[in-house]
């Protein structure tokens, strides 16, 4: 009974979602290894080795792994998986892209986006945008699982380091290659890891008006999110989207501004500790999911809020 966790990283920093995945792995077994596949990714392996609960880190440092293409990494993990009962990854876009490819090679079902571990073969996961929670039991001998990071606490870093072992690179697939990446640069906290998230929706009206969301976020040191409507309308880039098919967040405080509250949006934020909504429509469904609501014009309320916070 051992677990292989596939680290999510950008060749320099370990994604915090992997820390939650390691916590989930620790609930399955005391024998948790972490695979860091990338290029010039020693720093990631070093930080993974210090995470509480990690027994060993496998590093595959190679040109072939640089872009972490699923076509190259899946055969590598497939080979390693022989020795493990579980293969886990965070349900990030990297994990969602990679793990089903591994599951198919192993001829096992994947259990996606688990929110709790009930026993060695039984897990809870949301269906239908989280409107229902399913308890599923896997009948496969090996289990391939993606983990919803917000449902598990982050494993902590310790002073002692687990051993790091280098492993051989896979054969390059030649099926795919990276052309380019356009990454959103921001000084603000990362959306899925922030304590406070301010999200804007269709009610903002246009891209220019979205700046008041940024101003409010800056007052509170918050990350910025958005509803699908705001992303579709081009107010903000796609990676701001919170919801069923976007990012799942569970901050201490979530403030939804000008968001009506479609179930697909609620799916991405309803596990936040405290939810606030500002909306001019008193009947908007968002108010059924909030702890505190203000009914009124966001263009009046948000500036008042900014002023009050600045004067505090």
């Amino acid at each position: 009974m051992s677990v292989l966790v596939i680290a999510d990283h950008n060749n320099s920093v370990l994604n915090v979602a992997t820390l939650s995945t390691i916590t989930a792995a620790g609930q399955l077994s005391g024998d948790v290894d972490v695979l860091v596949a990338g290029k010039n990714c020693q720093a990631v392996a070093d930080s993974a080795a210090k995470i509480s609960g990690v027994k060993r880190v496998l590093i595959c440092d190679s040109d072939i792994c640089e872009a972490q293409l699923a076509e190259n990494i899946a055969p590598l993990v497939h080979q390693l998986a022989e020795k493990y009962s579980y293969v886990l990854s965070a349900a990030t876009t990297t994990g969602k892209n990679l793990l089903p490819r591994i599951a198919a090679l192993l001829d096992v079902a994947q259990i996606s986006d688990i929110i709790s571990i009930e026993s060695e073969d039984t897990f809870k996961r949301p269906f239908y945008a989280g409107n229902v929670i399913a308890t599923v039991q896997s009948t496969d001998s090996k289990k391939v699982i993606t983990v919803r990071a917000t449902a598990f606490s982050a494993a902590v870093s310790t002073d002692t380091a687990a051993p790091i072992e280098a492993i051989a690179a896979p054969v390059e697939s030649a099926l795919s290659k990276l052309v380019s990446e356009e990454l959103t640069k921001s000084e603000r906290p990362e959306l899925t890891a922030a304590d406070i998230v301010i999200s804007g929706g269709r009610g903002l009206g246009n891209k220019e008006n979205f700046k008041i969301i940024e101003a409010l976020a800056d007052c509170l040191g918050a990350a910025i999110g958005a509803s699908r409507a705001a992303v579709d309308a081009g107010f903000v880039p796609n990676d701001f989207q919170v919801g069923q098919t976007g990012k799942i967040v569970a901050p201490k405080l979530y403030i939804a501004v000008g968001i009506s509250g479609a179930i697909q949006h609620l799916a991405g934020m309803k596990d936040s500790q405290v939810i606030v909504a500002i909306n001019k429509d008193a009947d908007a469904p968002i108010f059924q999911a909030t702890d505190y609501g203000i009914v009124g014009d966001l263009f009046k309320i948000v500036p008042e809020l900014i002023e009050a916070l600045n004067n505090a």
Binding site: A109, I133, A134, T135, V136, Q137, S138, D291, L305
Partner: peptide
């Protein structure tokens, strides 16, 4: 390969309140 053992509703949120103004919210 996966057996569905149980389907439940997610925990319900306690009813929220509507506050009058920014001062009350803060």
């Amino acid at each position: 390969r996966l057996k569905l053992l149980e389907v439940t509703e997610p925990p319900k949120r306690e009813g929220g309140v509507i506050v009058d103004d920014v001062a009350a919210l803060l």
